[in-house]
């Protein structure tokens, strides 16, 4: 296959970037999108040019590192896959492919197609956990959990933290990411214990980091490589409203949860 690539090149976070056009030929339709990028980079290196920097690691669709915005879609035109799972047979011979980094204020570009997604870690740090220490835990089967709830929780937990939801959303909103984590825990008895504190802390951190608002366009769900449903966003809204309306403050001093 012969292709024309228009790729965003940006030397570092401080510099201004621009699109550069590359021609590439003899690409096997069986190669993956990232293998096509490898081939491009190999040729750039041999010409003494700086190869295109992009995040990638597991190359099997689970680590969430790869993050290209391809022809108007995060992770490219196919549904339910990451960029590393995208194969060139999906494209037409002679096609022009525009490759951009994720665009969102909380995801600044570090170089070329690499963006900084530390904001996601910060949201998890704000409350995306169950506050238990290692050890001293009752038997795993001591609390039965309805299979349906466990399965719904797993649906939400499948999030790989790639940021495609933010990239796809016209508002650069992180609601699906946050909702997935909130839902995973809200559906399990272990997570319910601090569900109210969790949803408030995580939403506050999300807003604080400068993500946009959810206007229920559903683009996140359509582009999520793990097909996480926006019903999780509704669940988070529910959790958030009831936490805000119903949360009680205990009197007296409370200790830290160390």
């Amino acid at each position: 296959m012969d292709l024309t690539l228009k790729i965003w090149r940006q030397k570092n976070a401080a510099s201004k970037g621009k699109f550069v056009t590359y021609k590439i030929s003899d690409i096997s339709p069986n190669s993956s999108f990232l293998e096509m990028m490898d081939i491009l980079n190999e040729s750039l290196v041999l010409c003494g040019e700086d190869p295109v920097a992009f995040d990638h690691d597991c190359r099997e669709g689970i680590c969430g590192a790869c993050s290209m915005y391809i022809n108007g879609h995060p992770h490219g035109p196919d549904k339910a896959i990451t960029t590393c799972q995208l194969h060139m047979r999906r494209f037409k011979d002679g096609e022009t492919i525009v490759i951009e980094p994720w665009r969102a204020r909380p995801f600044p570009v570090l170089k070329d197609l690499i963006v900084d997604r530390t904001a996601f870690d910060k949201i998890i740090q704000a409350g995306g956990y169950v506050s238990v220490n290692t050890g001293g835990i009752p038997d795993a089967n001591s609390i039965p959990i309805p299979k349906v709830k466990a399965d719904l929780s797993m649906d939400a937990a499948a999030c790989i933290g790639c940021g495609a939801c933010v990239a796809a959303c016209k508002n650069a909103s992180a609601m699906l990411f946050v909702a997935a984590k909130v839902s995973q825990f809200a559906l399990l008895p272990q997570g319910r214990v601090e569900a109210s504190e969790r949803v408030q802390a995580m939403v506050a951190e999300m807003d604080n980091l400068g993500f946009g608002n959810c206007t229920n366009t559903g683009a996140c769900e359509a582009e999520c490589p793990k097909e996480i449903s926006i019903s999780n966003i509704a669940r988070m809204n529910r959790e958030f409203l009831s936490a805000k309306l119903g949360a009680q403050k205990p009197s007296g001093r409370t200790g830290s949860d160390a």
């Binding site: 946009g212 559903g218 359509a222």
Partner: peptide, 14 residues
């Protein structure tokens, strides 16, 4: 939240 826009704006099935 998105100071720099995309060159190719996506139209997801929504």
């Amino acid at each position: 939240a998105r100071p720099q826009r995309y060159k190719v704006e996506g139209f997801s099935h929504t």
